[in-house]
Amino acid sequence: MATGTETAGPPRAEVAVEIVGLNKWYGEFHVLRDINLKVTRAERIVICGPSGGGKSTLLRCINRLEDWQSGRVIVDGIELTDNPKQIVAVRRDVGMVFQQFNLFPHLTVLENCTLAPIWVRRMPKRDAEALAMRYLERVKIPEQAQKYPATLSGGQQQRVAIARALCMNPNIMLFDEPTSALDPEMVKEVLDTMVELASDGITMLVVSHEMGFARQVADRVIFMADGQIVEINEPKGFFGAPQHERTKLFLQQILR
């Protein structure tokens, strides 16, 4: 994943994401309460918890799809402020995969993948296409390159979305419930892709209820509820000996 050190400053800071005292309200509703989190480079984090607990919102703060009222978010040594330059710098460096895929339906699979490299990285079209084909091969659907997203299955669409994000050579990947919108038989193909990616040394933050995936690849698992980080631990401790009542209850419900 080496992108070279084209930017000045601390090249590839050891801390990939640092969140300090983050608070966010939707009107009266306090979605994120005093979040503090430090993610080191190449770390793989799985965030779980009941819906409405603020998991996705937290993830979306990392590439500033959401803004906040107080606190700081520093990504790859760049502090996110209202400054659009910094926001774009962070977004170039952070890939994101959405629950609903959000592929561009008017573009082919290949065009979906080359759009940002061509227009944001200013890569020549030929190079962008070669790069895109490499990642489409990695997610095992090079043969769909010329098709339109609507003609693919959900699992294939989500793998295209992963390839599209990877084409920007991100240092950090955010996954927002990547398998929640999929039919059960397609969950595995997407998870397999993510597991393969995890062995790559890319920093990953994954909001997911796939506990098997968390056990297998996570360095740390975070349990969030009511806008707070309730518990944060290595998978072994997290699943073996949860500390908080809320975590125990949640794990009981989800693991049955």
């Binding site: 590439n63 799809l65 959000n102 592929l103 561009f104 940002a116 599209r164 920007m168």
Partner: peptide, 12 residues
Amino acid sequence: GQYEAANALGLS
């Protein structure tokens, strides 16, 4: 989601 995906890719 279309705007978000484009923004997340760094498109202006």
